[in-house]
Design a protein around this nucleic acid. Sequence first.
DNA 1: CGATAGTTTGATCCGCGTCAATTCCAGTGG
DNA 2: CCACTGGAATTGACGCGGATCAAACTATCG
Lengths: 242, 242
Amino acid sequence: MYMSDFSGAESLLALEESHPCHDCAVRHLSMCSGLDPGDLRRLRLCGALAAVPAGKALFFEGDPADCIFNVTAGVIRLSKLLSDGRRQVTGFKFAGDFLGIAEEAEHGFTAEAIAPAEACRFSRGRFEDFLAGQPQLERQLHLRAIKDLAAARDQVVMLGRKTASEKLASFLLMLADRSGGMPPHRLSLPMSRTDIADYLGLRIETVSRELSALKCAGLVRLLTQHELQILDRPALAALAAG
Amino acid sequence: MYMSDFSGAESLLALEESHPCHDCAVRHLSMCSGLDPGDLRRLRLCGALAAVPAGKALFFEGDPADCIFNVTAGVIRLSKLLSDGRRQVTGFKFAGDFLGIAEEAEHGFTAEAIAPAEACRFSRGRFEDFLAGQPQLERQLHLRAIKDLAAARDQVVMLGRKTASEKLASFLLMLADRSGGMPPHRLSLPMSRTDIADYLGLRIETVSRELSALKCAGLVRLLTQHELQILDRPALAALAAG
DNA sequence: CGATAGTTTGATCCGCGTCAATTCCAGTGG
DNA sequence: CCACTGGAATTGACGCGGATCAAACTATCG
């Protein structure tokens, strides 16, 4: 059985007065946005800020689900494995995203940092106790779950019915939408080609080929291996829509 | 723009004293299970029981999301379309399941009855007002959303990384698990081959072939076209796990 | 019975996977 | 600054799983 390789203690920075939530850069994005100062202070006591180096896991599929996370920086990759090692990436989490709440006693997926990340790490028990007295926070999280569910359904459609090039176009637009709404002059691809392939249900050779095809068609321009520019967003959107 | 072909009025049976929720056969399965009689009575006033004939839609993708449903009988198929008509079935809902809550103003998928169904139909606005005073009901629904999300992630893995035969095995086991926990001497397949294919991201010919292959391998027996028997559940489970 | 839609089976095709060979690039040390 | 190195990405050749096309079979309902 897997155990998390992220033992929090040494990388925890206590959430003390020296680092209070009201300085948090992503508070307006995250579930905490609706809390008043008193509740925020009590929530803070349920957890601590954790630095997660690139490549390290927050938790593995099958780990006891005793912690939940609020991502404050970096990128987290969510994935599931089949017994023979085939991997499916089920999503990416960015600053402001909430993650790890489970109905089961064990996490249903693995969460790993693909870029150096930070996350507020809460004890599940203490968080749930806190939640019991905060109906509007529960409502917040419920809304986020519904949003995640809609995103998962979109991924289902993509995996089940779209071609390789349509998948890649959908992926690039999804990233562009989530990387701040700004005109994405440069779109960063923090994940490896393997991660992209495992998200799209393809092999890395196919991702590479389709990316080249988009480049040749003039829809995108590759700036570096992990950075590109969308040149023709309408055409990309038309491709993504099927 | 699509409009629902299910105009409720003529098929609504008012939820009056003559048909109170305490006679409801699926109450123990559904979100209402935690409500006391008084709250149940008030919830009842938010909606009505609707009979949905086979083939009729509860709502279409793109319809204003002003109604939500609690399925009490039958089977509901959820699906999404691409612009050129490719269809992906994103799930099936059975008695006791809750359905249609949306974060957006419009439904993100189509919900249609594949077998004659009944559902409690609530006005979204009135239901949300009621919900505001019922934190433990909100919690119920939140938990259901989390469960739906886990199921959607399983479907993502299936679509992205499993072979045709593994997909079919997973599907049959999922149905067996949901068709009451009883020893499934006879497993009913209420949906058409097309529905199964659109759920699994395959074509109906492939579904038919793989079903024949499972039959030849002695894992299942086809009783009728819409009923089968699982003969070797462990082998089927091993196949489904990849 | 016949009509019609749904399902099964067969033959062939093609998109993406597999295998293999470069090429690119970040990091390291001279 | 360049040379080296190992992992990641790209590109090419070929094969296979599932799609497509076509035909026969079966269930349901008048």
